[in-house]
Amino acid sequence: MISPRFVRRLSRLLQYGLLSLFFAFVAMPMAVIVVFSFDANRFPSIPWGGFSLVWHEAAWADPMIREAFVNSIWVGLGTAVLSTAIGFAAAYIDFRHRFFGKRLFVFAVAIPPAVPTTILGMAMLAFVSRIGLSGRLETIVACHVAVASSFAMALIRLRLGEFGRDLEPAAWNLGASPWAGLRFVVLPFCRPALIAAFFLSAAVSFDEYMIAWFVGGVHETLPVRILNQLQGQVNPKINAIGAGVLAVSLVLVFLARRFTNLRPEPMHGPDLRGDSA
């Protein structure tokens, strides 16, 4: 006879075990890249060949990688600024106004991330080359903005949900024109979400390779450079570039997270945690 207590213990053990495996599964690829970027060996393998910065130095010395890095920074910055602006405008209109076709309007901003980037990249290239915009860094920014605005809008709209309905009319009542109300009341209130949207859009852009690969032409962003390197010969610099890209991504995502208070919250009642398994 198996005691219920034993079953409960076993169930707990399995749950925590599975969770640990899951986090190991999530963390492992990132750890592998970082660890092997400091490996003196030419090819990542066990045993480790000893600590070395040689691949980091080699990566940094590669002019193509440097150029791609600089491109990525510009594209990321441009995307962050524009996506935040567009995301804010879209979120504010969704919050404040009601008009015919609003759902479609919101949909046009929200849906792009749901389209596979392979298709989107190809469609964007086909269209922008038709209107003579292909092969430019600005075009990568423009196309990234079309996708990243969705995340920016989501974050800012979430924040506006906490915005008191009376605050804006109160500002008008106290002498603020609608534009002044937007500038002095709505924007300051949304500040944390704007910052989060900025970093998240930058992260989305910094990470994106399909669209950048399609529309960028000869201009490579860092992920595109990596993709091209991965398809060529095994290159020990990859880990070093990867470690750098990961570091930037992690910082951006953590910063974005820092300025959002999006967390799972119970709707009603106290947050009781079950005590039987």
């Binding site: 009376d166 109160a170 009542n173 106290l174 109300g181 209130f189 500040r191």
Partner: peptide, 18 residues
């Protein structure tokens, strides 16, 4: 509204939290 001189005290107070 913003050109009228009719300030209002709101039920919610509508103070600017930032």
């Amino acid at each position: 509204a913003h050109l009228r001189d009719t300030p209002m005290v709101w039920q919610s107070l509508a103070l600017f939290p930032f």
